[in-house]
Design a protein around this nucleic acid. Sequence first.
DNA 1: CAGCCTTTGAAGCAA
DNA 2: TTGCTTCAAAGGCTG
Length: 249
Amino acid sequence: MYKETVYSAFNLLMHYPPPSGAGQHPQPQPPLNKASQPTHSVPQLSPLYEHFSSPHPTPAPADINQKQVHRPLQTPDLSGFYSLTSSSMGQLPHTVSWFTHPSLMLGSGVPGHPAAIPHPAIVPTSAKQELQPYDRSLKTQAESKAEKEAKKPTIKKPLNAFMLYMKEMRAKVIAECTLKESAAINQILGRRWHALSREEQAKYYELARKERQLHMQLYPGWSARDNYGKKKRRSREKHQESTTENNLS
DNA sequence: CAGCCTTTGAAGCAA
DNA sequence: TTGCTTCAAAGGCTG
């Protein structure tokens, strides 16, 4: 079932090649040395940026055999970044520009801020339940638990570069492919992400970096571990089984 | 109706 | 330091 969907999605992908600019840099992105990844506590240029400040960056020998990942690329001139993201990106149907992305909207959720409106990144853990009709007579233990959790809102992780790209391009891909299944859409987006030019990807890496910085400022004590275990997930064994199956197929 | 699927990247954590 | 795990988004699908 899923394979069929994915297969049709792949065919559609072939019909709808990546946007202009994509494919002009077919060479794989330099592998990312995990140790050189930027951290939350690096407000200045990260080592990644130093890496790409070189006109012709080459991966360190130790990187060669590592899992292939994409290294963020440095935007040559960041002075034009904001106009780029706020104008050209803002023209897209589903924009996630610095100014419009929900988790980046300033003036809310900031402690002591006059607006005193919860930050969009703060999501009640029982949002779905709150949307449903509320019947006090049917108030259950689960509901009171949900209420307690609602009072203790979850601060979501900041979106990474690919997540920002997905959010922006999803609607476009859905319109082109007339697909709705996110799994299939995400596969297409993953391929398109690989086909993006370095400059295009750099936009999103920079955007993600800015988002992490703002997230740090808004929630200084927040850690990704705060959300660990909040999602019930399949067992580890099951996950390994499926990944093994995927590798075999 | 909770969890899975599917993607990449960031971060946490155990060894 | 390395390698694995979890979670970010999204919406159809499944048990």
